[in-house]
């Protein structure tokens, strides 16, 4: 379960629907990490990610009346963020990826290997927009294929295909650099 899903429930949504801006600000603070990170991993640029995140929350503010519950809110945020990010990528041209910019705050220590993590993030950036969104929703947001399908308006089969092929691509490219490419059919998730 993501941090957003686990957040304690209060009446900030109801107050925000009522026009309380400070309540809306609480909602932003609670969910900004989810929205910003999805944007960052999709667009590979902090400035663009913050721009996108602002757009998403401004759109939320205009449509907060339609949000029925906290879980609906999280679903809505993931869906709108992913779709907007995919649209931006497909419209192009994109700013040149500045890896140091994209990864500047990524080194929050969690005991992992930062170079390995950076390498994996670079590989994820090479996926197509749709595949990238699927991988992020699976591995950042911990969604199952059915939820990913609902979020992205795809069939479950397409989601599973994206996951299977993307993992295969990521593993293969990860093992390259002078080594024999390994084609691992992978386990359907």
């Amino acid at each position: 379960m993501s941090e957003s899903d686990a957040a304690p429930r209060d009446d900030s949504l109801a107050r925000a629907r009522d026009g309380d801006v400070s309540a809306f600000a609480e909602i932003v603070r609670r969910h900004q990490r989810l929205v910003f990170s999805l944007g960052l991993r999709m667009l590979s640029n902090r400035h663009s990610a913050e721009d996108l995140a602002q757009e998403v929350f401004l759109q939320l503010h205009q449509h907060v009346d339609e949000i029925e519950s906290d879980s609906h809110l999280v679903f809505w945020l993931r869906r709108v963020t992913a779709h907007r990010a995919i649209d931006r990528l497909r419209r192009g041209p994109h700013r040149e990826v500045d890896l140091s910019e994209a990864d500047s705050v990524a080194n929050e220590s969690d005991g992992g290997d930062p170079l390995l993590a950076r390498r994996l993030r670079n590989l994820v950036r090479q996926l197509s927009p749709a595949a990238r969104a699927v991988v992020l929703l699976r591995y950042q947001e911990d969604l199952d294929p059915n939820d990913i399908a609902r979020t992205l308006d795809m069939s479950v089969n397409t989601v599973k295909s994206h996951l299977k092929r993307s993992l295969m691509t990521l593993r293969t490219r990860f093992h390259e650099d002078g080594q024999i490419a390994v084609y691992d059919a992978g386990t359907p998730t």
């Binding site: 197509s128 397409t158 295909s161 994206h162 092929r165 295969m168 002078g178």
Partner: peptide, 17 residues
């Protein structure tokens, strides 16, 4: 390269062994 299928470069060089 579309529909979740990765690009397969049929002309790519063999990886070093």
């Amino acid at each position: 390269g579309q529909f979740g299928i990765p690009k397969l470069d049929l002309e790519e060089k063999k990886s070093g062994k």
